[in-house]
């Protein structure tokens, strides 16, 4: 028995396209510019906008079962864990003992949320679609770690921050969710309202490494 419904807030039919969808960084890139990668570029910055972000709260055991049913993925077993599917398109990150962040390709979040609600049934849980509230930035390249060392107090040495770890920490006085899905790539999940600030900070911090913005 389930009364799960799908709340798809995207405009459809004749109204589709009436409101232009703009990423949190659209204005920043227009105003602050987006330097192109050069020959000496050692760090690349890109925004992966319009992904589906879902905050899952509840008991680890019931959520883990539901996620296995719906996505074939399991929750990270340890605090500060980050797991991805094989394609690297979907990820689940530990945020707190009873909270996880699920990121799926854009548009999929409505259906995933409904299926999770059906699978969870009467269990004690909460799922919030926070896609509009945050965006994901990627730093890639050999100097990516050095840019982070200028920006966060957290120790990002590979010995302390292996692949598959994710933390919430302070980034240039703002908060950021920092995660490392692969050796060369770091992801920053930032609040929409802090996206412009973070972007301009990264351009400034990355200048000495010839930061290039991919768009």
């Amino acid at each position: 028995m389930s009364n799960a419904q799908q709340f798809d807030t995207r405009l459809v039919g004749e109204h589709a396209g009436e409101i232009a969808v703009e990423s949190p960084l659209a204005y920043s890139m227009h105003r602050s510019g987006a330097p192109k990668a050069k020959a000496d570029t050692t760090v690349t910055l890109r925004e992966r906008a319009f992904l589906g972000h879902l905050t899952l709260r509840g008991g680890a055991i019931v959520l883990d079962e539901a996620l296995r049913d719906v996505l074939g993925m399991s929750l990270p077993g340890e605090p500060l864990g980050l797991v991805q599917d094989e394609a690297g398109e979907r990820s689940i990150q530990w945020m707190s003992p009873d909270e996880w962040l699920l990121i799926v390709p854009g548009g999929e979040e409505f259906d995933v949320e409904r299926r999770l609600r059906e699978a969870l049934g009467d269990a004690h849980f909460a799922i919030s679609n926070v896609s509009g509230g945050q965006t994901l930035l990627e730093l890639e390249g050999e100097a990516a770690r050095e840019v982070l060392m200028k920006s966060v107090a957290y120790d990002v040495h590979p010995r302390h921050f292996p692949v598959g770890k994710g933390v919430t920490t302070v980034f240039a006085k703002a908060s950021v969710i920092l995660r490392r899905p692969s050796e060369e790539r770091w992801e920053l999940v930032v609040r929409r309202s802090f996206a412009d600030y973070t972007y301009r900070w990264l351009l400034d911090a990355g200048e000495e490494f010839g930061v290039g913005v991919e768009r």
Binding site: E78, P79, L80, P97, A153, Y154, V167, T169, V170
Partner: peptide
């Protein structure tokens, strides 16, 4: 005790 590691004071 929940994250299981040491962090800087500015996070608290």
């Amino acid at each position: 005790p929940y994250c299981g590691e040491h962090r800087e004071e500015e996070e608290f």
